[in-house]
């Protein structure tokens, strides 16, 4: 008996070490590049380009953040991104909320086909449909306009919105709506007064996810917004990348400024968002 327990204890110690070292290895892989991002952002001009490379700044400085914020275009890009992401989020959530409700709760001919079409379009390579979208927008004189970019952003935000909201809706019991319908409410009233309030956390998570995707969108912004003052942040920060020399300090500092808002949003919504993603993607 004693020896057996002894063996088990030793085995679990070895296992603990194994699990612990796996965790440390994963954390190193994750954090090492991030260390360089943070360290470069807080290094001064001379230290950035000095040898041997030091992992941590010898003298911490905020000069890169100051320079990024003083760079006039940066503020403009920031506001562009904020406006584009907010408007897209509101538009996409309204359209996909109605759609998700229709696809989960209502019966109509072609429901399955149209739902398949919408889920399918979420998986299309954006680079592959950007040529026709570019040409359509050009024909409508919407190149280099916020409206044009909004329309382009709906191509990916609406399908993802429908997909996520549908998974949230499926966990809302049907009985409450049915009760409202029995009491004489119309479908739309039942939707607005019963479903929407119950779905609020899901709507919040979906909105945040759409904001998060739009905030970092790169390709459409790169192709459609040809005028410098109309660019959004992900394309805009490339200003710090030079043909021959890149101002890494400024670039990393402004990258941190780009990441912060979405990181904050993510901290607040992660529980809801992850539940929705898991439910939408894989739940049996």
């Amino acid at each position: 008996m004693i020896t057996r327990r002894h063996v088990r204890a030793r085995e679990s110690l070895a296992l603990k070490l194994l699990w612990g070292s796996a965790l440390i290895a994963i954390l190193c892989f994750i954090l090492f590049p991030i260390t360089q991002m943070l360290s470069t952002a807080f290094k001064g001009q001379t230290e950035q380009f000095s040898f041997p490379v030091s992992f941590l700044p010898k003298q911490w400085t905020f000069i890169n953040f100051e320079q990024a914020l003083q760079y006039k275009a940066f503020l403009r890009y920031f506001l562009n991104s904020l406006a584009m992401s907010s408007v897209t989020t509101v538009a996409a959530v309204i359209i996909s909320l109605l759609g998700a409700y229709g696809f989960t709760r209502l019966q109509f001919p072609g429901r399955k086909f149209f739902l398949a079409m919408i889920i399918f379009s979420q998986m299309f390579c954006l680079a592959a449909i950007i040529i026709p979208i570019y040409r359509i927008l050009a024909a409508l004189h919407l190149i280099d306009s916020y409206l044009g970019l909004l329309v382009a952003y709906l191509t990916f935000s609406v399908p993802i919105g429908v997909w996520l909201l549908r998974s949230f809706l499926m966990s809302v019991p049907v009985e409450l709506e049915e009760a409202a319908l029995v009491e004489g409410a119309t479908k739309f009233e039942a939707f607005r007064k019963v479903v929407v309030p119950l779905l609020k956390p899901g709507i919040g998570a979906t909105g945040a996810y759409v904001f998060f995707l739009t905030w970092q969108e790169f390709l459409f912004s790169l192709v459609i917004m040809t005028g410098k003052e109309h660019r959004t942040l992900p394309v805009g920060i490339m200003d710090f990348v030079g043909q021959y020399e890149t101002n890494w300090g400024n670039l990393m500092a402004s990258s941190i400024l780009v990441v912060l808002p979405v990181l904050v949003i993510f901290v607040f919504i992660q529980r809801q968002l992850i539940a929705g993603l898991v439910e939408g993607a894989v739940k049996e």
Binding site: Y101, F103, R111, M117, I118, S121, F124, I129, L154
Partner: peptide
């Protein structure tokens, strides 16, 4: 309910 989403996807994905 589903019309706006369907029409949008038609214009932005199927036609392209």
């Amino acid at each position: 309910f589903t019309g706006p989403a369907i029409i949008l996807m038609f214009l932005l994905v199927v036609i392209p």
